[in-house]
């Protein structure tokens, strides 16, 4: 069910997972995504909090440490695979575009 839910990733999901390729505090992800995307993608705190909970439930990330009100996470193999699948899906789109439009 959870896998089906994340069969395709939104831009916000994609960048959150990308940030978690290395251990990162949940709260810092908002700023990291803004920097990575040059301000093109912004993630609201409510959305981020809930998506992190959903990723945890789906086993795509895991908690690494808790410091006060700060919890840190890192990508799991399932999460890494989800990112790869998304990139593969986008490559198919790009391939099709090139085949028919260029």
């Amino acid at each position: 069910m959870a896998r089906e839910k994340f069969q395709t990733l939104t831009e916000q999901m994609f960048y959150i997972l990308l940030c978690l390729r290395e251990e990162c505090c949940g709260m810092d992800i908002m700023e990291k995504v803004r920097v990575i995307t040059g301000g093109r993608v912004t993630i609201g705190p409510g959305t981020l909090y809930n998506l992190l909970e959903n990723f945890m439930t789906a086993g795509m990330i895991r908690e690494t440490k808790v410091e006060g009100r700060k919890r840190s996470y890192v990508l799991t193999d399932v999460g890494r695979q989800a990112l790869k699948d998304e990139v593969a899906r986008m490559n198919v789109l790009i391939g099709d575009f090139r085949k028919f439009m260029e």
Partner: peptide, 14 residues
């Protein structure tokens, strides 16, 4: 400010 909710799907779920 950055909106608290930036994903309508997540917002509806909440």
């Amino acid at each position: 400010p950055v909106p608290v909710e930036t994903d309508e799907h997540v917002k509806l779920e909440m």
